[in-house]
Each structure stands twice: as C-alpha cells, then as structure tokens.
C-alpha cells in the first residue's frame, strides 16, 4: 500500500449529505475484475450527461458542466471536502479505488460510513473527521477562493489553511501508523501465524462443530 505522510493540494467541495458508494462508482463498473482504471467513472452519473457503461471512451462523453468535478477551478484536486455520512451503502472497495485512481488522497467530512472509512485506509486514502461547524467553514472558504489549498500532515495530525490557521484532527494510533508506513496488513497478521494456530486448536476443542467441513466430515 502507498504511504501517506504529508500533502498540499487543491480542495474540491461536494456539498451533499449521505453520498453513497453507488454514487461514487455506479454498479455497472463493478464488473471489472481489476483494481485500477475506475477514475474516469468516479461519480459517473453526476459527472456525465449520458449513461456510462464499461468500455466506453469517456473522453467522448458529454460532461455535466455544473458538477464540481468538471469545473476548471477544481482540476487536479487531491482533497475532497464532503458532508455527513460520506460513503454509506455498499461495501464495494471500488469506491476508494475510484477516488484514489482519480487522484484524491484525503477526504474531509463530519462523518463517514464505517466500511468505507475502513476501506480508505487499506488504499492509502486518509479520511478525516472534523466537526460540522469546521466543515461548514471550509465549504465557505473553498467556494469563495479559487485555487484554495490545504496542507494535511498525518504525522502531526494537522490541517493547515492558506492563512496559516491550524486545525488538529483525531485518528486512531494503529491506523495512523499503518498509513504512515504503508504497511502490508496481511504480512503483519501472518507474523502471528502461531497464535492463529493456537487459537484454532483451543477453539476446536471448545467448539468442534465450527470446524465441520462444508462437505460434512470433521
């Protein structure tokens, strides 16, 4: 996984609550068996005026000029500013894949849906929870100032505004550590293979029915 340490980038505001993963990446693109290439279909239904299907040449499709992602002032944005309950709905990891593929590395919102929040960390995206008032203020400032940028420093757990104001944020220590180091979760868990085997042995004694093979025998 890609590390996340520090980033200064353009902020794109997405001013709606309850943005669900179907909106982030519509289901027809979930048929892909790959992990990449979802960026051009991020927010597909809001971003284009026609209906998107896998395999289309996205550069030829009519874009919706009103949608923020298509506005020139937000091109190259790496920080997404969102409203409450961002990423609700399905567990599809295609949602963070699409955000990452497009170029977003940070998402700021008053709250996130649990599975989505968790999926972000697995993909080197930093989701930051700030209180609703601070988020409101950021929305006002982003919309008022073209080229508005924030600096996000994970080590120090701070967001720095263009005027130098610093906003601290909270993050679980373990998540911070993994993201800073870009650690491979599976590799880390397998370091405890002996403990997993010991658990299985204990459990097999206490609850043998859990180890019945799906074919019927133990």
């Amino acid at each position: 996984m890609e590390k996340f340490t520090k980033l200064t980038g353009i902020v794109m505001p997405l001013d709606r609550p309850n943005v669900d993963t179907d909106a982030i990446i519509p289901k027809q693109f979930l048929k892909s068996i790959k992990r990449t290439g979802f960026g051009p279909n991020l927010f597909d239904e809001w971003r284009y005026l026609d209906h998107g299907e896998p395999g289309m040449d996205n550069s030829q499709r009519p874009i919706n000029p009103d949608f923020v992602l298509n506005q020139p002032r937000y091109q190259g944005a790496q920080i997404l500013l969102a409203r409450e309950n961002f990423g609700c709905g399905s567990s599809r990891e295609h949602a963070p894949w699409a955000l990452l593929d497009y170029g977003f590395r940070v998402i700021i919102a008053p709250s996130f849906a649990d599975i989505f929040y968790n999926n972000c960390f697995k993909n080197g995206i930093l989701p930051i929870v700030l209180d609703a008032e601070t988020v409101d203020e950021l929305f006002r400032e982003v919309e008022a100032n073209e080229g508005y940028q924030l600096t996000v420093d994970l080590e120090r757990q701070t967001i720095t505004k263009p005027d130098g104001t610093v906003i601290p944020f909270e993050i679980d220590e373990f998540r911070k550590h993994r993201l800073l180091e870009g650690l491979d979760d599976i590799g880390l868990t397998l370091e405890h293979a002996d403990e997993i085997r010991a658990y299985e042995a204990r459990r097999k004694k206490a609850a043998p029915w859990l180890f019945v093979h799906l074919s019927g025998s133990v």
């Binding site: 990891e93 963070p96 968790n118 993909n123 373990f174 599976i186 868990t189 397998l190 997993i196 299985e200």
Partner: peptide
C-alpha cells in the same frame, strides 16, 4: 468487508 479484507480473511482467516 471490503476487498482488501476479503483477501486478508482468505490469507489469514482473521481480521484486524
């Protein structure tokens, strides 16, 4: 769970 965790469960039978 997400797909990274699907892989994690397949490989380790565990989740963090």
């Amino acid at each position: 769970i997400g797909t990274s965790e699907v892989e994690h469960v397949l490989a380790t039978q565990c989740l963090v």
